[in-house]
């Protein structure tokens, strides 16, 4: 796999060209991703949105080197995804918090640091800082099963941030939470993004969530999984929850919805 020449935009973090991924199954090949072209610059907040089966999670997993593409090129930080993973270039937040029940919250957040061989003092310092960042200070000694779902997911975000990667990959992290908690966490995530200056790639199936969070919205459609539309979000970076009532927000949401509807080549 050849790294893309990063000549174009200001510090391109992810470059994807003509990328495709085909799963060979017993019922013949499944085209999970086809002909994907995408550029993600440093500091952007990009959402992948689409119906289930459109390949949005698969695309994120390709970026994370959890799946291997079968065609095209992709580079992450100018490296292949494999090299980027070994260089610990990204933090990944899964649909479930996936915290270890035998570790306290602080120990869970320290897990990647232990694996990457950070010293004890450094671990303690980073755990403290990141727990503060996600508003969990005071819960260091609790076990995951003593916390609510929202708090668990916040801890898993702190874990992904603990080793300070520039890139944060999030796969429907708030999908299992109720709407009130989700709104709250969305707001917190925006603040966190503003504070840390990370590049975020965020998979969701919620239109308001995508529009509220992103600087760029990528609409995908299924069979084969492909990009239908890429929308640059004109909303200001500094936004509160009430921006969702504005005409501008609704206009962007409308365009996303239109894209999702048109991308559906079937009726059901």
């Amino acid at each position: 796999m050849q790294p893309q020449p990063a000549d174009s935009a200001a510090r391109s973090v992810i470059d994807i060209a003509k990328l495709s991924l085909t799963f060979e199954t017993g019922d013949g090949p499944v085209h999970a991703l086809s002909d994907i072209d995408l550029n993600i610059g440093a500091g952007e907040f990009v959402s992948f949105i689409g119906p289930s089966g459109c390949g949005k999670t698969t695309l994120l997993r390709v970026i994370a080197d959890l799946e291997a593409p079968t065609g095209g090129t992709i580079s992450v930080n100018g490296m292949s995804p494999h090299e980027a993973r070994l260089a610990r270039a990204y933090g990944y937040v899964f649909q479930a918090a996936a915290l270890y029940p035998w570790r306290t919250i602080a120990e869970n957040i320290a897990l990647p640091l232990e694996i990457m061989g950070h010293s004890r003092e450094d671990r303690e310092e980073r755990v403290r800082r990141n727990m503060e960042l996600v508003d969990l200070d005071g819960f260091e000694r609790k076990y995951p099963w003593q916390l609510s779902g929202g708090m668990q997911q916040r801890a898993s975000i702190a874990r992904a941030l603990s080793f300070d990667p520039d890139l944060l990959l999030m796969d429907e992290p708030f999908g299992a939470l109720d709407e009130i908690v989700r709104d709250h966490l969305n707001e917190q995530l925006l603040k966190l993004w503003a504070k840390t200056d990370k590049t975020v790639v965020f998979v969701t199936h919620s239109i308001p969530e995508a529009v509220f969070l992103s600087t760029k919205i990528v609409v995908l459609c299924p069979r084969p999984g492909r990009i239908y539309d890429i929308i640059d979000n004109p909303l200001p970076r500094d936004r509160g929850l009430d921006i969702r009532e504005t005409a501008e927000f609704l206009k962007v949401a409308h365009r996303v919805r239109e894209g999702l509807r048109a991308g559906h080549s079937y009726d059901d």
Binding site: R85, R88, Y92, A98, L111
Partner: peptide, 12 residues
């Protein structure tokens, strides 16, 4: 699967 993926992303 998620637990394994998690360790994989840390290049453990």
């Amino acid at each position: 699967r998620i637990q394994h993926d998690l360790m994989h992303t840390y290049a453990a």
